[in-house]
């Protein structure tokens, strides 16, 4: 036991360092943690080397030791990246080590920011897409991983012909409801600049893709949000009108057949389309009533609000 506790204090390599114990303040600390002896010792040596801003091989090992005990320790990660650069350590080796940690601790900001820092400096994304696929096997909606992937696309110009769109499509084939994948798709297709929204061919391909997905599962909100985003943001020759989706929405939600609505999102879109024309306001109100009473009543207040915005349907007062 004693030997184990004295990993640093008994080591000749560390003999020149005077450890700095944790200052817990003058009183009885709140939210205190009964640390393991190993952690207490490693941390007191960390404080000491950080106080000297030491950039060394041994300090690097110390950070690894602490990260193994507490991977959420952002300070250690930042200090580690500084040491890596200062000592010109092998960055590919760092990535290999990082992979094992990332697979073990999924919900962690630090690991992904560290990866970002290292891969940016490496100036190469070789192997990254494969590793991300491995991460997605554990959780297909991991926010940190998707955010990292978006950075990767921009940093390494992976917009087209680099397997990104294919990767997204393969995830959506497995789960067409994965909204993170839909978001990534949007970024790939439109993230390079406003001119993408004027590209007729591109926009038509995306509309077709979303429509196909809706046919698989009409109550899946993701492709509906995608289409509404397209209607809002496309422009110039590629501009999409709301009205052009009337027939499509009606396939899943028809006011002539109010008992057989197969998608509340279609009904929502239909209401928006009808609201555009003053003459259709009464029908828009019908669609919103259906949502409020039958198909999505938890959002009754929201549907009533939408109704209050209709021209000629009582206006603002109806919202009260």
């Amino acid at each position: 036991m004693l030997e184990k506790m004295a990993k640093y204090s008994n080591a000749e390599e560390w003999a020149d360092i005077v450890p700095i114990p944790q200052d817990d303040g003058p009183g009885q600390p709140l939210a205190a943690i009964a640390y393991s002896d190993d952690y207490v010792e490693a941390m007191s040596y960390l404080r000491a080397v950080m106080a000297n801003n030491e950039m060394s091989e041994r300090a690097l090992h110390l950070t690894e030791d602490i990260i193994r005990m507490n991977p959420a320790h952002y300070t250690v990660w930042l200090y580690r990246s500084r040491i890596l650069f200062a000592t010109s350590s092998s960055l590919p080796a760092e990535i290999t080590w990082l992979n094992t940690i990332a697979l073990k601790y999924q919900k962690n900001y630090q690991i992904w920011h560290h990866r970002h820092t290292i891969v940016d400096a490496l100036n190469s994304c070789t192997g990254e897409q494969d590793f991300l696929s491995q991460m997605f096997e554990l959780d297909m909606k991991n926010y940190h991983v998707w955010s990292y992937r978006q950075w990767l696309v921009k940093r390494f110009d992976l917009w087209e012909g680099k397997g990104e769109l294919e990767a997204v499509e393969s995830i959506l084939e497995r789960d067409v409801r994965n909204n993170s994948a839909w978001n990534h798709r949007w970024y790939l297709v439109f993230g390079r600049g406003e001119s993408c929204f004027e590209d007729k061919e591109r926009v038509r391909r995306e509309v077709d893709y979303a429509k196909e997905a809706i046919h698989l599962a009409p109550q899946n909100q993701s492709p509906w949000n995608y289409i509404r985003g397209l209607i809002r943001q496309t422009k110039g020759p590629a501009a999409l009108s709301l009205a052009s989706f009337k027939q499509f929405a009606s396939e899943f939600a028809s006011l002539d057949d109010p008992d057989n609505v197969t998608s509340s999102h279609a009904l929502d879109l239909l209401a928006e389309i009808l609201a555009e024309r003053e003459g259709d306001a009464a029908d828009a109100a019908k669609a919103l009533d259906l949502l409020a009473k039958k198909y999505d009543p938890i959002r009754e207040n929201y549907w009533k609000y939408r109704k209050s915005l209709l021209v000629g349907q009582g206006g603002v007062k109806a919202a009260a």
């Binding site: 709140l30 939210a31 205190a32 943690i33 507490n70 991977p71």
Partner: peptide, 20 residues
Amino acid sequence: LEGPFPPQFVAADATRPWML
């Protein structure tokens, strides 16, 4: 708030202000 927490709470060592 008061703790002390057992050693397995070490992951909270960088988020003690949040615990407060």
